[in-house]
Simulated scan of single mutants.
Amino acid sequence: MNENRYRVAGMTCGHCVASVTEEVAEVPGVDAVEVDLPDGTVLVRGQDLDDNRIRLAIAEAGYTVTEPVAV
């Protein structure tokens, strides 16, 4: 299983967490999404993760990936 972590700007509440989780979970290969609201990060676990599609899903939820974070 692979893991990608992203720092995401603009998440401030439970609705933000739900929106990001829902969009990223729909990306093929994603098995789990964990949003750490206080830290402003999103951890994605799965097989053959597509970084570009994950970033697009986060953007679709209305947020911006500011930088990748080493896992």
Rank of each mutant, 00 (worst) to 15 (best):
V17M: 06
V27N: 09
A61R: 04
V35H: 09
G40N: 08
E26Q: 15
V17N: 08
V24Q: 10
V8T: 05
T64W: 14
D51L: 02
G10V: 08
N4E: 01
G10Y: 09
P28Q: 15
Y63D: 10
N52I: 01
T12S: 07
V44S: 07
M11C: 00
G46C: 06
V42L: 05
A59Q: 06
M11I: 02
E26M: 13
T66N: 07
A9I: 14
L49G: 06
V44M: 05
V42W: 01
N2A: 03
P28E: 15
V42Q: 04
A18F: 02
V17K: 07
D39R: 04
D51T: 05
V24L: 08
V33L: 11
G10T: 15
T41E: 08
Y6S: 04
N4Y: 04
V17Q: 05
V44A: 11
A18D: 04
E22A: 12
V20C: 04
G10D: 14
V30G: 09
S19P: 11
L43N: 06
E60A: 11
V42G: 00
D50E: 11
G46H: 01
T66D: 07
A57I: 13
V71T: 08
G46D: 01
G29Y: 12
E60P: 01
V44N: 04
Q47Y: 12
I58S: 07
V8M: 02
